[in-house]
Design a protein around this nucleic acid. Structure first.
Lengths: 120, 120
DNA sequence: TCCATATATCCAGAATAATGGAAATTAGTT
DNA sequence: AACTAATTTCCATTATTCTGGATATATGGA
């Protein structure tokens, strides 16, 4: 996780429509939501949503997979975890060893595709 | 932590100079660094640095305190922690109980003013 | 008070990002 | 092939952000 990737992820999330979209996708893991339905749910035109999804996708925060005519988007929590770790890395006075246990526990929290499905 | 505050914090960090500045301040806790020295270290004019510090400050990520003629800036990790929690809140399929233990452990990691000082 | 230092504010130009209409692409259906 | 549906790309307009010179404000010293 370098500076450039971190900035891309932070910038992708630092916009109302995209943050809302990402959080919606996070809470709809692992089912995902189609691009058109996202546009309808958030209340923006489909081309605007497409542009935002492209930004999120380029930052690695979401992945799209075609299912017949729709493209189902899903949140990818790996980058979110990496950004969190990157920002916390220098925490606690630069002494990483104090944060290491925390970071170790953060890592297994959200591995993709292994989360229990609670509801859709 | 609402959407607006989260976006402000993410946007503040989603810029190369500010991310670098913030990380520098994080690793220099709890001593802090004067505005002018930050400008010199990062390599930007003082008024540009001042504008960036203002953005970080408005997002609650740094605090400035005047010491004689200088204003010493320090990272405030509370907001960083809150943003992290906000982003992780919907993790794990929307089942907060799975993330709650993690979140509980994240909270005491970086309380301000209680971090051990390793070096300046 | 006068001067030097440190930081912030004002302002304007340049760069970047957001938005959405129109058209193009991709996939399924008949 | 012709048609519909879903999504994306193209493009131009508008809005926002970044940057830094010039100026203003605040502090301490002579």
């Amino acid at each position: 996780m370098d500076n450039t990737k971190t900035i891309a992820a932070l910038a992708a999330l630092a916009q109302a429509t995209r943050l809302e979209t990402f959080r919606l996708l996070v809470s709809n893991e692992p089912d995902g939501i189609a691009a058109g339905e996202l546009a309808r749910l958030i209340g923006v035109p489909s081309n605007t949503m497409s542009a935002h999804l492209s930004t999120l996708s380029q930052a690695g925060l979401v992945k799209g997979e075609r299912h017949s005519r729709s493209i189902i988007y899903r949140a990818d929590l790996d980058v979110l975890r990496d950004v969190t770790l990157y920002l916390l890395k220098d925490c606690c006075g630069g002494n990483a060893s104090l944060c290491a246990p925390l970071i170790d526990e953060l890592s297994p929290c959200c591995p993709p595709n292994t989360r229990p499905q609670v509801d859709a």
